[in-house]
Computed example of a mutant assay.
Amino acid sequence: MASTAVSSTNKAKQATNNATTDGTPITEEELKQKGTPITVDDIFRLQKSTNGYLTETDDNVYKIDFVHFRIRDMKTNKVLFEVQRECDEDEAMDNDDPSAGRFVQYHFPPSFLKLKQVGALVGFKVGNREVKSFRMIERHFFRDQLIKSFDFDFGFCPPNTTNSIEHIYDMPDIDSKQMKEMINHPNETKSDSFYFVDNQLIMHKKATYAFDLDYSQ
């Protein structure tokens, strides 16, 4: 079946805990024991980055498959990171690895922390079920201190389509002391990306960041 290409640009909304109905802190372990689906409100109650994953791979009943990812500096249009794959052929090979396809280790130059705005383009395929109210909450931490939280709405995605959307991030203001700490301690800067359909968590991806690249030639 032929795919329909759907594309758009999405400006981030800064997500805050004020959007939740219950601000009581909750732990990763408590969420894993939760008897009902994990919601956006639950995620806002987390106080630090997770150690593991809050979803299983088969929770993604919509067969959403990310196939393209690119980060660029919005001021210069310079591409800072890009990866693209043809299909989902690697999933079966990594069934014994719980982080397969769900974890990325980024390396950027220290100057990345001084950028004002970046664009993160994602391309993804949808299976044979329509996806209503597709939403991502992304939370960035340094040593369990929340740096910034983002809220992106993908909207409606028809079944059997290939979609692309660019999220525009307004980068957080980081003082020189914390910036130095983040540079000197690679991979202690982390992010959790939580994906929801109809306010039910279906995917969880994680990343770490090292600001150790030298782009000078």
Score class of each variant (00 low, 15 high):
Glu130Trp: 11
Gly52Glu: 09
Gly52Thr: 11
Asn187Thr: 11
Lys206Trp: 03
Phe194Pro: 00
His185Ser: 12
Asp42Lys: 07
Asn187Phe: 15
Glu91Cys: 09
Asn10His: 11
Leu54Ala: 10
Asn163Thr: 09
Asn18Phe: 14
His167Leu: 07
Phe66Glu: 10
Asn95Gln: 13
Leu46Asp: 03
Lys132Met: 06
Tyr169Pro: 02
Lys78Ile: 09
Gln84Ala: 12
Asn95Ile: 11
Val131Ile: 10
Val122Asn: 00
Glu188Cys: 09
Ser8Pro: 03
Glu29Val: 09
Ile38Arg: 02
Lys205Ser: 07
Asp170Gly: 05
Ser176Leu: 06
Phe156Met: 04
Asn199Asp: 15
Ala120Trp: 00
Phe141Met: 03
Asp73Cys: 03
Asn77Phe: 11
Thr4Tyr: 07
Glu29Asn: 15
Gly35Asn: 12
Phe141Tyr: 05
Pro25Ile: 01
Ala15Thr: 12
Thr161Arg: 01
Phe194Gly: 05
Gln145Asn: 08
Tyr209Phe: 09
Ala19Glu: 14
Val40Trp: 11
Pro25Arg: 06
Asn17Trp: 12
Asp151Trp: 05
Met1Asp: 15
Val104Met: 04
Gln14Thr: 10
Lys114His: 10
Asn163Asp: 08
Leu113Phe: 04
Thr20Ser: 15
Val40Arg: 15
Asn187Ser: 10
Thr36Asn: 14
Glu188Val: 00
Met182Arg: 06
Ile71Arg: 00
Leu201Tyr: 00
Ser191Arg: 00
Asp41Glu: 02
Phe134Tyr: 12
Asp144Glu: 11
Pro25Ala: 00
Tyr209Val: 03
Asn95His: 11
Ala2His: 08
Tyr53Arg: 07
Asn18Val: 13
Asn18His: 09
Leu201Trp: 05
Glu28Ser: 07
Ile71Trp: 00
Ala207Gln: 05
Val40Cys: 11
Gly155Val: 04
Thr39Arg: 13
Val6Tyr: 13
Ser193Pro: 06
Asp175Lys: 02
Gly52Trp: 10
Gly119Val: 01
Phe194Ile: 07
Ser193His: 10
His185Pro: 00
